[in-house]
């Protein structure tokens, strides 16, 4: 019984360490008239699909702890800012790490790809 419990715990630890972390930070230069739709996804036509979508109107920091190792994920941002917006992607991802982009005042739609590490 104790042996089975130990094995289960070990399995859980392995699973925990196997998943990879992605941190996405969005910063607006100004405080008014900002909006961004963040999408983190992996196509349904591929193995281990993933789907996240959320809308923000101010600075945000989103942490994903359930990404699979050595897989590509798409990160799309669509929205507007009347000042400026900077997105930073970091965590257990392959180079470039962190991946960063700055967008000037506009209505924007950008896409990035990250690949998690082993």
């Amino acid at each position: 019984m104790a042996k089975a419990k130990k094995a289960k715990k070990k399995k859980a630890v392995i699973r925990k360490t196997a998943t990879k972390k992605l941190i996405i930070e969005g910063k607006f230069t100004g405080s008014l008239n900002n909006q961004v739709i963040l999408e983190v996804f992996r196509s349904n036509s591929l193995a281990k699909p993933y789907d996240f979508r959320k809308t923000y109107t101010a600075n945000f920091k989103e942490t994903f702890k359930d990404l699979e190792p050595q897989l590509e994920y798409d990160i799309d941002i669509t929205g507007h800012t009347v000042t400026g917006f900077t997105i930073t992607m970091s965590g257990d991802i392959q180079a470039p790490n962190p991946q960063k982009d700055t967008i000037a005042s506009s209505s924007f739609s950008r896409g990035y790809t990250i690949k998690t590490i082993k």
């Binding site: 999408e39 036509s45 591929l46 209505s107 896409g111």
Partner: peptide
């Protein structure tokens, strides 16, 4: 609404290419 449409469109473009 226009930006939501752009988000949906871009996602669909990528889905189409992936498929």
């Amino acid at each position: 609404k226009a930006e939501s449409l752009m988000a949906v469109l871009f996602r669909a473009v990528q889905e189409s290419i992936t498929q």
